[in-house]
């Protein structure tokens, strides 16, 4: 026959054995209770601290903050809390993941419980310390995964719009932008010009310097063009060695001026590749959208025709659609 369970003894046992730090202080911060969890993690026996001041026993504690928290409970007669998110830990305990845990200390949730005497006034504060390390690590892992996902999404977005080699708009994005600008021209009638740029004798560059040389030429030419145009202008890779410049609010003459500037810069800028220096020139066909222009394809066809005239005329030049070849 088993003896009846003594409720008080049971409560005592539970407080001692529970996997939560429990200690209690009176109004002067004298320790009046200190459970086994606290002993085991602090390495200090209860018998050595009971009846002594909390801060004398544990001088590393954040005294000003903790005193204020405890005093608040006495004054307000209410619970107080501290989460690991605000303050990683109160006591510098080791956590229980010595191999897999990536934080240096046990992350802790702290609760300050008012202990009321028979007359209802608060006579002590019971402080509980709960190990929140797992929650912390789990949340961090989740945040890291989210950050990686966001980075990946940004990368995908960049790739879907940018040409991988040159960094300017890819054909798909270029088509969309051209369509938009043309629609705007149709609706508001503001000028719109298109310049198609083609690297002269590009096949020769590839044959002489290899495809890597060709790649470098395209990269540098794209960069040189980008530097000459405005922020509102649109620059994209139309084809293998063909770039397109979409120039809103610019007429044919303005487009020709920009194009001539681009042509001159490219002619004058040698491109370093390995031990060699590559000089290239470009041909640029220019056209302006007019009421008669039916759609974007019509605009492109005109610019292409102007470009073709450049090639026939000897390359390294700018030609406007409909103008006399000179």
């Amino acid at each position: 026959m088993t003896a009846p369970v003594d409720a008080a003894a049971l409560a005592q046992l539970i407080v001692e054995r529970v996997a939560v730090g429990v200690f209690t202080v009176d109004e002067r911060c004298t320790l009046v209770q200190f459970n086994r969890f606290m002993e085991q993690h602090s390495g200090v026996a209860a018998s050595a601290v009971l009846g002594r001041n909390l801060f004398e026993c544990f001088p590393e504690l954040p005294r000003r903050w903790l005193e204020q928290k405890i005093r608040g409970v006495f004054v307000l007669q209410n619970f107080a809390f501290s989460s690991w998110r605000q303050r990683p830990y109160l006591f510098a305990f080791a956590h229980n993941r010595p191999v897999t845990g990536s934080v240096d200390r046990m992350q802790q949730d702290v609760t300050f419980v008012p202990v009321k005497g028979p007359d209802g006034a608060v006579i002590a504060v019971c402080v509980t310390i709960t190990d929140a390390t797992d929650a912390c690590l789990s949340e961090r892992a989740s945040e890291q995964a989210s950050a990686k996902l966001r980075e990946a999404l940004a990368e995908v977005e960049k790739l879907s719009v940018r040409d991988g080699l040159t960094g300017i708009l890819n054909r798909r994005a270029l088509d969309i932008r051209m369509r938009d600008e043309f629609a705007r021209f149709r609706r508001y009638g503001s000028p719109l010009s298109l310049a198609m740029l083609d690297v002269d004798h590009f096949k020769r560059v590839n044959d002489t310097h290899g495809h890597l040389g060709g790649d470098e030429v395209l990269r540098r030419v794209s960069a040189l063009v980008a530097a000459e145009i405005r922020d509102v202008d649109i620059l994209g890779r139309y084809g293998g060695e063909e770039l397109a410049m979409v120039l809103p609010a610019v007429d044919a003459r303005g487009a020709a001026v920009v194009s001539e500037r681009v042509r001159r810069v490219i002619e004058a800028t040698p491109i370093a590749f390995m031990d060699a220096t590559i000089t290239v020139t470009v041909s640029i066909g220019v056209t302006e959208a007019r009421p008669a222009t039916t759609d974007v394809n019509g605009l492109i066809a005109e610019a292409d025709e102007a470009l073709y005239a450049c090639k026939r005329g000897g390359r390294n030049r700018v030609h406007a659609f409909g103008a006399d070849p000179n």
Binding site: Q68, L76, A80, Q86, R87
Partner: peptide, 21 residues
């Protein structure tokens, strides 16, 4: 005054304390 000498205690900590109050 969640930390008397520290000017500007972390905003979240103050928010939580006020809420608790």
């Amino acid at each position: 005054a969640s930390d008397a000498t520290e000017a500007g205690a972390p905003r979240n900590e103050v928010l939580l304390e006020i809420t608790n109050l």
